[in-house]
Write a protein that binds this DNA or RNA. Sequence first.
DNA 1: CTGAAAGCGCTTACAG
DNA 2: CTGAAAGCGCTTACAG
Lengths: 327, 327
Amino acid sequence: MKEHSTIDDVAAMAGVAKSTVSRYLNGKPVREESARRIQQAIDHYHYEANVFARLSAKQSHIIGIILPGFDSVTTPRVLTAIDKYLRAKSYTPLFINTEADLAYEVRSIGSLARMNVDGIILVATCITPAHEKAVAAVKTPVVFMGQEFASGVSILDDNLAAGEALGRYIAGRGLSRVGFLWVSEDDIAVGQQRKEGVLRGLQACGVTDVRNYLADFTYQTALSVARNILRDPDRPEVLVCATDRIAYGVYKAARELGLRIPQDLSVTGFGGYETNELLIPPLTTIRFDAETQAVICAETVLKMSRGEPVSQKQLIGYHFLEGGSVR
Amino acid sequence: MKEHSTIDDVAAMAGVAKSTVSRYLNGKPVREESARRIQQAIDHYHYEANVFARLSAKQSHIIGIILPGFDSVTTPRVLTAIDKYLRAKSYTPLFINTEADLAYEVRSIGSLARMNVDGIILVATCITPAHEKAVAAVKTPVVFMGQEFASGVSILDDNLAAGEALGRYIAGRGLSRVGFLWVSEDDIAVGQQRKEGVLRGLQACGVTDVRNYLADFTYQTALSVARNILRDPDRPEVLVCATDRIAYGVYKAARELGLRIPQDLSVTGFGGYETNELLIPPLTTIRFDAETQAVICAETVLKMSRGEPVSQKQLIGYHFLEGGSVR
DNA sequence: CTGAAAGCGCTTACAG
DNA sequence: CTGAAAGCGCTTACAG
């Protein structure tokens, strides 16, 4: 005896051809009497179709999601939201973790296309010409999340607007000596646009004394860079950090050196992590709505798979969260 | 022209049968000359096999991972480690997110088996009779992670030993009025065994004044329960929390009420989250090695899929992290 | 509305 | 070592 029942078992029990069962499963018209018998057989066998056996189907009902890692503050929220949305539409999500390996990311586009997925969501950190080539080479729709994809569809945080709001706020508090604790410009969305936004906001209010410090996305690097910055008596009045995590490094370094936030040093972040409320004082930061972004990505990729028109570029709004970390 | 090259294209170009290509791909003996020509064709087409087309293969080289959600402190670390291990062995991980829906969890065991996966790792929160039935009904090996599975293979934290160590430490600091801020006993590993361990440690040192308070895994609940506890002047000297997140709630409530940690109140956690170093004072807690657990799970399920013998139960060690939250 | 047949891309005995 | 054929579980034109 086979371990699992197949469409043949159901067909045999219902007394119809398996093609009829297939039609029934896919919501195509079937005589009422057949439907009844098929459903009976399905119930009897606890039958459920093997999603991966639809090799010759036009639609696989599978969406591939390429991500640079599971380990970040927003990724789990994004994945949860995408997963939920897709399952509600009876699509199966297929996650590919690239561990931020760009070459693997590019290859995954091809692999997923070959697996006949109906669409791909790529959570991007950096879009290279190789990405563009890979996307152009497949007919599978691809949406980029988090970074702008010039020759295709992308859904991203409105970093420019959010940064500008933050820049105006900082200037509005009378702070004029500003330090940017930022990530590399390789990251367009965060490394360039987010910073550009803050700069615009500052400049609009006449603040031009700006210094730049390079960090990366890790807490450790932020901590050690912050230590150096803060030891300098001529340090900036406010450290604008590219992410909350970087701001955490500043908090720690400030504490080590006996500097009080915000009296001796102001700090801001980007992220709006839940853990912020544990900080003393709470961090002033910008929060992007990851869930909305995720849902829009999923929605958009499904639309594309049906050939419906979609916007080239969609921007997700932000929330300004005023903590107590700016004097 | 087809969009993707298939095994037929490669076979044609190499001038061999596709069965020969298949053998080559699967590392079975092939004449050197054939191998050379096949590899050439593969390179030419950038061919890569479609993992999901191996419907009639004995081994699919796919491992299913059933998890209750992406959103927890340890899950991303666990997923990253499993993913990495499996890919290194050229297995494809297939993640099923159940959002803690036990019925869906049970059904997923069947779905994955039907998809012909070589093994299943189930990140468990609660094992029901339905789980046991589902596992018994499939020949696919299943390992449970995080909860003990009496009738099968499980890999879990050594909560009993870790709890005991913490209990002895607390008693050793001279604290005698203890409060447990815990989660429901529905969770055997955390709700029962972890607490049992602490109790043993305390009792071994003569501490018996113990009160119990019920919370859950969320920060919000912990916060509101902690507020009530701490308002009582007759409150415990130390709050032993089932997780770090719960301890965070206590920190917050203590701050609101003007209680100093550890002078006015001692607190401990379980978890060893990275964010702990931001707390003032750092939290005294127990850390389990999620990466080790993940790797052992993956290793074990692969062994089982090869029919090799494995232990029924494997316990992961712990690290005691002394912070400054115990007087 | 339905069945027989061919096909999706791969693997697996079975001869040779 | 290799090829022709059958098969995995499903879907899809194509007749009827």
